[in-house]
């Protein structure tokens, strides 16, 4: 009995020691997470419950900021603008980047050079990309001349036209984001064992059937990742709207995303409490959408293993 007790105690001790060392090893990560993620998250939520003009200490006001947001014209408009930007840019980005990845998965002369050119929009920062687009979009600039045979117009006000402007921003987003997602798709395609494609071909499947029946189902984890990341990134849309759109989010707020509202309220309008409330709202939106995407994408049916 005593022997058994000692053995159990000794095993418990080993487990405890292992857990102890495990904790030690993960501690830096936990501290990093707590300092840079958890603390700002909690502080952000607290600030959303305060009246905070930045220049004086925050004053607790409960959920007033959230109640005010329900009748805040700019905030309500920014929800529809953000949704438009997310839907308008995410679906085309995901689909087009997949097609480009499929193209680059094939072997053809000059593939690596073309890949490099296609990849180039990812190299400069979003701010630089935005400046490039500002130049392209001059009323009598390159883009106007490109479409001139179709429109017959010498000048087109791309970014100051209330209808055209959001479309142009979405195009800029697709152009700048596509290379990154193309790489992810390419990695997903490479991870699919060649034997499965060969087996499909032996079974008589043509290229399209092989893609629909074999590759696409096996790309589901990649698809979930691409969709989740691109949706989160689109929800956080800020830099393009800040640099390309006139007066940060204009004209007439047609490009004022939730990100722009947070910046304006927090750092332009001395309304940090409201900015924090919008941030919390954005956080919840992203959590819900991403959670839904992951839940929909979760399936044991298609797995390489």
């Amino acid at each position: 009995m005593i022997g058994l007790y000692r053995r159990v105690w000794s095993e418990k001790n080993v487990i405890a020691r292992r857990q102890y060392w495990g904790l030690i090893f993960v501690l830096p990560c936990v501290i990093f997470f707590a300092v840079f993620f958890l603390y700002p998250l909690v502080t952000g939520f607290y600030l959303s419950l305060t009246k905070y003009t930045l220049l004086r200490p925050p004053v607790f006001i409960g959920f007033d900021n959230y109640a005010n947001l329900l009748k805040d014209r700019l905030f309500l408009k920014s929800i529809s603008v953000t949704l438009g930007f997310v839907v308008g840019s995410t679906a085309p980005t995901v689909i087009m980047s997949l097609f480009v990845a499929l193209l680059f998965y094939q072997k053809f002369p000059g593939r690596e050079g073309l890949k490099l050119i296609f990849f180039s929009p990812l190299l400069p920062s979003v701010a630089v990309v935005s400046v490039i687009w500002v130049v392209l979009l001059h009323p009598s600039g390159i883009l106007t001349n490109v479409v001139r045979p179709l429109t017959g117009k010498a000048e087109i006000t791309w970014i100051h036209d209330i209808t055209l402007s959001p479309i142009v921003i979405v195009l800029a987003r697709i152009w700048s984001a596509m290379p990154f997602y193309m790489l992810i798709w390419l990695a997903g395609l490479t991870a699919i064992p060649q034997e499965l494609r060969d087996a499909a071909r032996v079974d008589g499947a043509n290229r399209i059937q092989s893609f629909w029946r074999v590759e696409l189902p096996l790309l589901r984890p990649t698809a979930v990742f691409v969709m989740a990341v691109s949706t989160i990134s689109a929800f956080q849309g800020f830099a393009l709207q800040y640099v390309i759109a006139p007066n940060q989010g204009g004209p007439v707020d047609v490009n004022t995303t939730l990100g722009i509202v947070i910046w304006k309220y927090g750092f332009q309008f001395f309304r940090m409490g409201d900015a924090a409330a919008v941030s919390v709202f954005l956080f919840v939106c992203i959590m819900v959408v991403t959670g839904t995407q992951i839940a929909l994408g979760r399936s044991d049916r298609y797995s390489i293993n």
């Binding site: 100051h160 036209d161 209330i162 006139p246 007066n247 204009g250 004209p251 007439v252 707020d253 304006k264 332009q268 309008f269």
Partner: peptide
Amino acid sequence: DALGRARDRIVL
């Protein structure tokens, strides 16, 4: 910001 928006709504 509000005045700039008004200007753009009218002018643009």
